[in-house]
Amino acid sequence: MDAAKACMETVRDCRQQLQDNAKVFLTRDPDSNHLHKMRVALRRMRSTFGISPHAFDETAFSDISTELKWLLEELGPARNWDVFVLKILPPILAALSQEHDFAKLQQSSDVLRRKNRDRAITAIESHRFQALLLELKAALAHDSWLQGNASSIGHFANLVLEKCYHNFRKRGRSITTLHPEQLHTLRINGKKLRYASEFFLPLYPARSAHSFLTALSGLQDTLGAINDAVTANHLFKELPDVDLATSCLVKGWLACETRQLTGQLDLQWKQFNTIAPFW
């Protein structure tokens, strides 16, 4: 199999994941995992299009990429509020609820969570979403966009992985001094490296890749937690009539958590850089 056809199979799998989880999400299933899986499928598709210009015509999916970005933007706020209500708030309430009443904060957060889930549902129920699924299906039904001189999958894998690895390490220099926007960019580059690694993993010995992927996943988890804390601070501004005491408690908690995570990130980054790439 050449690189282009391998990428095509990845897009096909992502489309199916998107469609299957959208169906469950529309049942108003309270499990936020289906929303998360939809966003992962969208990001994987965008990443595949982004790393594959040598495998197929890079303009072939330009219109589809625009629609994938639109859908991510429609689903993003719902996911952010899921994280805020289900992940950020519970430990804060468990630790501090005896000293402070968080009822108003909980109520307002639930209202905004439902509002943004309704926005996500509206997007998935729209004709625009159905058109996106049909466009993807049509693109996958023929191979006119495949490059005639597409490289072998092994050669292509090495090129892509090396490029993603170089970009990730470059972005992570002086990691403890990076501000939130730079850490967010580093996190995105880490996702691209992880997606590419998982995509090409069957081509390499599993044992040699295990340590690399374990270290990379740990970094991604920490970067994700830092990003969640930063996002939570932004979301907090959307909450109506939050009293000063509640605001100080939550923001103080998030600041302490971010400080701890940043220290953890430094150690993880050093450990990651001691592991040789598996390709």
Rank of each mutant, 00 (worst) to 15 (best):
L219C: 11
R169C: 13
T231L: 09
E125G: 10
E135Y: 08
L183Q: 07
E181L: 15
G224D: 06
S208W: 00
I226V: 11
L203P: 02
L249H: 11
H155F: 10
I124M: 11
G190Y: 03
S208H: 00
F212M: 02
N233Y: 06
G252M: 09
N233Q: 15
V242G: 01
S152A: 12
S151P: 00
T177K: 15
F212K: 02
L261G: 07
L132Y: 02
Y204D: 06
A209G: 10
S217V: 05
T176C: 10
T214H: 11
D143S: 11
G154L: 05
R259W: 06
D243M: 02
L239H: 07
R169F: 04
S211K: 13
S174C: 06
L244C: 07
E135A: 15
W253F: 13
L134I: 02
G172Y: 08
L186Y: 02
A141E: 14
N227P: 00
A131N: 10
N227R: 14
L136W: 05
C256F: 07
Y195D: 05
L223P: 01
S208I: 00
W145A: 09
A229L: 04
V160H: 02
S152G: 15
L254A: 03
Q260G: 15
T231C: 09
L201K: 15
L178H: 11
G224A: 02
S208F: 00
A215K: 12
T258D: 07
E257F: 08
S152Y: 09
W145R: 06
R171W: 05
I121F: 13
S247H: 08
Q260D: 14
G218M: 03
L178A: 15
R194E: 15
N158P: 02
E125F: 02
L132R: 01
Q182L: 14
K170F: 05
L132K: 01
T185H: 11
K137Y: 08
W145D: 03
F236D: 04
